[in-house]
């Protein structure tokens, strides 16, 4: 594929909310599309899925308000909020997108940006800064934090907080290991059974858990094969015969 055609334009933007709160974000989409996503997320009934549910990170500032609640406040703290909230949800979203567009400032444009997956040192949690867009976003978040930390909504973008999250993650894994069942391997990024499970004779409870998983996987595989079309079966057979060869 032509590498030039893979490049995009990256944007770093800042949204000004009520009470002088700000949010700094990055996107390779159009600004309107990104703001539309923010609005949909803010008005959604679904509970946000935490990327790292094991890290209940403490907001450092007492007057902290999340991005979603800050977006909703734009709607609820208007003089005509009653009328706005009485509108159909589609119109509320449209109003909020326009309001966010009005409040958004482009901080930096990164031309010819090609997404790179930043590599993180598994032992320190430090990122290698190879992603230009992420690096630029971080620069702006840091500057905003230096200027006034209490105004910043996305405090998690700060490097010291990423480091803390990583330390907390390591402490959690240490606690898990102490329980005696699993350990986290940085090489694979997965949890693995501890020695006792793998190489000693299993206790009755352990054996029962092992058998339960074995039976579940067996049933799952059986159902998978039974639902295969003839064409899929043929491909599967070919693949495995090749592997055997």
């Amino acid at each position: 594929m032509d590498k030039e055609s893979d490049s995009k334009t990256g944007i770093i933007y800042k949204i000004k909310f009520l009470d002088k709160k700000i949010y700094i974000g990055k996107t390779t989409q159009s600004l309107e599309e990104r703001l539309r996503q923010h609005v949909y997320q803010a008005l959604s009934d679904k509970k946000p899925k935490r990327l790292a549910v094991e890290l209940p990170f403490v907001p450092p500032y007492r007057n902290f308000k999340g991005k979603n609640s800050s977006i909703r406040r734009l709607l609820t703290h208007q003089k005509n909020s009653k009328e706005l909230r009485a509108l159909p949800i589609k119109d509320q979203r449209r109003w909020l997108i326009d309001e966010l567009l009005r409040r958004t400032e482009i901080l930096e444009v990164i031309p010819n940006y090609r997404p790179v997956k930043s590599r993180r040192n598994p032992l320190t949690g430090n990122s290698d800064n190879s992603d230009r867009l992420a690096k630029a976003e971080r620069k702006h978040i840091e500057a905003a934090w230096v200027k006034d930390p209490k105004q910043l909504l996305n405090y998690e973008g700060l490097p010291m907080h990423s480091k803390m999250k990583h330390e907390l993650f390591k402490a959690l894994n240490k606690s898990i290991e102490n329980l005696g069942n699993c350990r986290f391997a940085h090489e694979t990024g997965n949890y693995h059974l501890l020695w006792d499970w793998e190489f000693s004779e299993l206790s009755d409870d352990q054996q029962a858990a092992w058998d339960e998983v074995r039976n579940e996987l067996k049933a799952k595989k059986k159902a998978y094969f039974e639902n295969m079309t003839d064409e899929e079966k043929y491909k599967w057979r070919q693949y495995h015969e090749l592997c055997d060869f």
């Binding site: 997965n190 949890y191 693995h192 793998e198 092992w210 998983v213 996987l217 067996k218 059986k222 057979r237």
Partner: peptide, 23 residues
């Protein structure tokens, strides 16, 4: 080819994932 018996590695990986959540 259509063996439904999971390997010990598959069982261990699934079990570890579940135990980690409980832990």
């Amino acid at each position: 080819i259509f063996n439904i018996e999971p390997s010990d590695e598959e069982i261990a990986a699934t079990l570890a994932e579940r135990l980690a959540i409980k832990d």
